[in-house]
Design a protein around this nucleic acid. Structure first.
Length: 512
DNA sequence: GAGAAGGAATTGG
DNA sequence: CCAATTCCTTCTC
């Protein structure tokens, strides 16, 4: 039999690992280990270590994956955007306060006299509730959580089954919470309650942990200590134990065989999603062929599909090739609230599309624009290349340039953007950027940088130079003095510059 | 302290 | 090669 596809056989560990990790993370569900199954049914590959539940067959499992993932994603994202403290019914045990670790501010911890239930988010995205009003971080709860024997079931009704006193400890708002988030308790792979470290019955934490795959074989073969450490870092202790236990009894040859069977099935699911998306959006399956518009469609679709918090599309106004070149950090930088998830989705998309050998191309480029609300409100039919950088001015700059700050150039021109062009682009979109750069005298080409930090940041984004600052940007502007592109105004003012050419990008509404 | 000016070396397309 | 970046010093406001 052929060896398993791709993921596991690229020996560039870190890179492969990232891909695997994001693949499993994105597909969501716990893959706690592999067990040899019989060759016809591909059984028992996935298993939930907490509930000791084994999924009987792959198809039913794989069909449940996206749902589970989406719900969890939704939960995570809603939590992440939960900035305000919600006051609830102060009845004892009620979910009095909801906050998220990441957004949590110190002041939120102060006033609560009555015990409240806190919602916390761990480093790995795990979400926890705690009735321990003193717990301020997920880590604290994780400490409490360390003893597996103390795990208790979280009943779908929302009641905590048993507590230290073996009685019900209701969490009245949990139903509402589940309802509001669309989270179905049955779809959470791991839901359990742990008693807190305090004798008080109020100290109860509920932990929803994001299900995740991890691949025993990969861990086994993740040859370098470093990549193993990276891997293990994302597996909690109990899963780790389970994994180790299973490895004792697993014949790795069988594992490899089963893994090989499993992967295509999962990929098949992803590919199905991709095909649907391609059809719906009328975009090619290979992100490398995406135009700026395709990228935008994909972003909007993915945001919509997975209910992610909005991001600034301008920061992703680029071709598919460029998009594919962005690192995870680039994604995070451009979209702090969901960049990592978007990166993972793109990664999965790329991988699955490549493996499955998908070659979907849109039937007609013209048709896509009227597809529906998936198009950006700011979508502009635009040429794909930026204006030639050669001239002094502005030829080619339209009144509504094809770009936002982070723009629409083809890869060939991506690096070719000039600072003066960029500044004009910003100036020509006052509705978006007047807060950071604006015309003082448009006809004379005089402009003022109102927010030097922001302009530098945008420029850094465009050029993929995270270390960009105004000091450097201004040095570049000063280079233009010599070249006669930009100068200081006659009466020099701070942060005020002037384009040398009279047109200065002003009235150049359109060029034929 | 922030901005301006410009020298010098380096980077990257 | 060249535009931009990076780092730097000096000066001004």
């Amino acid at each position: 039999m052929d060896p398993p596809h791709c993921f596991l056989h690229n020996k560039k560990k870190n890179k492969t690992f990232r891909r695997i990790r994001s693949f499993w993370l994105t597909t969501g569900a716990t893959w706690s280990g592999l067990r040899p199954g019989n060759s016809t049914r591909h059984t028992a590959v996935l298993r939930d270590p907490r509930r000791r539940k084994t999924f009987p067959n792959i198809p039913s499992l794989s069909s449940s994956l996206p749902l589970s993932y989406r719900n969890l994603n939704l939960l995570r994202k809603r939590l992440a955007s939960e900035k305000t403290t919600k006051e609830r019914d102060p009845s004892p045990g009620g979910l009095r306060r909801v906050c998220c670790c990441r957004e949590r501010e110190r002041e939120e911890e102060t006033d609560g006299a009555a015990p409240g239930v806190r919602m916390l988010q761990g480093r790995d995205g795990a979400v926890m509730f705690s009735a321990n009003a003193d717990a301020t971080s997920a880590e604290e709860i994780e400490d409490v959580d360390a003893e597996p024997s103390s795990l208790l079931e979280l009943h779908p009704s929302g009641a905590i089954m048993g507590a230290q006193n073996n009685a019900f400890a209701p969490l009245p708002d949990i139903d509402a919470f589940l309802h509001n988030t669309g989270l179905n308790i049955d779809q959470i792979q791991q839901g359990h309650v742990t008693p807190g470290d305090s004798p008080s019955p109020d100290h109860v934490s509920v932990k929803f942990e994001e299900p995740r795959y991890y691949c025993a074989e990969h861990a086994q073969e993740g040859v370098t200590g470093q990549s193993q450490a990276m891997f293990v870092d994302h597996v909690d202790e109990q899963d780790q134990t389970m994994w180790e236990e299973q490895l004792q009894t697993v014949d790795m040859h069988e594992v490899r065989k089963n893994l090989g069977k499993m992967q295509p099935l999962i990929i098949k699911e992803v590919v199905k999603d991709i095909e649907v998306a391609c059809k719906l959006l009328n975009i090619p399956s290979d992100p490398h062929y995406w135009t700026v518009e395709h990228v935008e469609k994909w972003l909007l679709w993915t945001l919509h599909q997975y209910r992610l918090p909005p991001l600034n599309l301008d920061y992703f106004r680029m071709s598919g090739v460029t998009l594919c070149m962005l690192s995870e950090d680039d994604f995070r930088f451009r979209a702090p609230r969901c960049g990592d998830i978007m990166y993972a989705h793109l990664d999965v998309w790329k991988t699955a599309s490549r493996i499955a050998g998908l070659h979907i191309f849109p039937e007609s480029e013209e048709e896509d624009l009227d597809k529906d609300d998936l198009s950006s409100p700011t979508t502009v039919k635009e040429e794909r290349t930026s204006p030639p950088p050669s001239c002094n001015g502005v030829k080619g700059l339209t009144d509504r340039p094809a770009i936002g700050p982070i723009t629409s150039m083809t890869p060939n021109h991506q690096a070719g953007i000039h600072l003066w062009q960029f500044l004009k682009e910003l100036l020509l979109q006052p509705e978006s950027y007047s807060h950071c750069i604006r015309w003082i005298d448009r006809d004379a080409g005089i402009f003022k940088i109102e927010d030097s930090v922001e302009v530098a940041r945008l420029w850094g984004l465009r050029k993929n130079r995270p270390a960009m600052n105004y000091d450097k940007l201004s040095r570049s502007i000063r280079q233009y003095y010599r070249k006669g592109i930009i100068k200081k105004t006659d009466i020099s003012q701070r942060l005020v510059y002037q384009f040398c050419q009279p047109i200065a990008g002003v009235t150049v509404k359109k060029e034929p």
